[in-house]
Simulated scan of single mutants.
Amino acid sequence: MSATFKALQVTQTPEQQFTQEVVNIGLDKLPPGDVLIRVHYSSLNYKDALSATGNRGVTRQFPHIPGIDAAGIVVNSNVPQFKPNDLVMVTGYDLGMNTWGGFAEYIRVPAEWVVPLPSDLTLQESMILGTAGLTAALSVNGLIQQEITPSLGEVLVTGSTGGVGSLAVSILAKLGYSVVAVTGKSKSHDFLKKLGAKLIINRSEIDEQTGKPLLKERWAGVIDTVGGNLLATAIKSTQYGGCVTACGLVAGANLTTTVYPFILRGVRLIGIDSVQCSMDKRLLIWSKLAAAWKPTYLDELVTTISLEQLPEKISEILQGNIQGRILVDLR
């Protein structure tokens, strides 16, 4: 095992700027933890891009290595449940936020963060899914727990070309739901149809500005990945007894609505968090993603890059120019 490893390091300059550079770092610099993992794959998420550009709400201390996802092989373990050569993955918790993350050839983490790789998933597939796949599946699971079945009508997915949205479209379609995908990118229509969207609408169609407390009922369920007024509009147009899940805020953190959808139509709003999700639920959801819920067109969802290509893709994801998932190959 080499005494150093490659990583994308983010450094703050004296001028309060943030630079991203692939560097060699000593293994002895890794944070303390129970399990040392040789990372084979990671993935790029919006939160990673925020961390890589100095967002203090995500990462407080620099220099830093982002990457909230990692999958690889155990090299060393201080706990009996993990042994050398075990295939494992880590998503969420503090990885890539204030603990050095997956944009590196090695990570060292607490055993409580480590998930054994399901037998029906490869390391590569696990990171095409990653945090985005876990979040999408938790959202789908939320609808199912609230008894939103395919027979009840259309399910709306906002931010449908992003990581969470595209995976949600694919999972829902595989489970037989009639999916309406929202996007502002006309060039992505063929991509969304391939994933299983029955209908594609422009985001302007669900960005209602009149301030009406209720709109015509349409959606049996909603998976919202963007927040802001699109979420407010979706809530106001959800059917009686319908369910809305919320997991993102790229369109805004504020939610302006009234209680009318909730007290007159019985609409349910469920928050989705994949960061501190319990291990029992993680294992359940990953078992579904490895089997019946595995997206049919995983290869269609992914662009594979190297560590050196990350800075360019970080800029693109912040501009909203990424379609599907970005897989980082660290082998």
Rank of each mutant, 00 (worst) to 15 (best):
L327V: 06
I171V: 13
K294A: 11
R331I: 04
K198E: 14
L318R: 10
V140D: 14
L8M: 09
R203K: 13
V275Q: 12
L330F: 04
P116C: 08
A136W: 03
I171K: 07
G96F: 07
R60F: 04
S237E: 15
Q17W: 09
L298D: 15
L123E: 14
T149V: 12
L8A: 02
S274T: 14
S77Y: 12
V164D: 05
I144H: 11
S77G: 09
V10G: 02
V90T: 08
S204C: 01
Q20K: 02
L123Q: 12
A292V: 10
V35H: 11
F62A: 05
L199R: 13
V328R: 02
R331H: 08
D28P: 00
T149Y: 10
T257R: 02
T161I: 10
P311R: 07
A220M: 10
L283S: 09
P32I: 12
L192R: 02
G162Y: 05
L255H: 07
Y46T: 04
L214Q: 05
D34M: 08
S315K: 14
A232E: 05
A246D: 08
C277S: 06
R265F: 07
P150N: 07
T225H: 04
L87F: 09
R282H: 14
Q309R: 00
N55L: 10
T256W: 00
Y106M: 13
L143S: 02
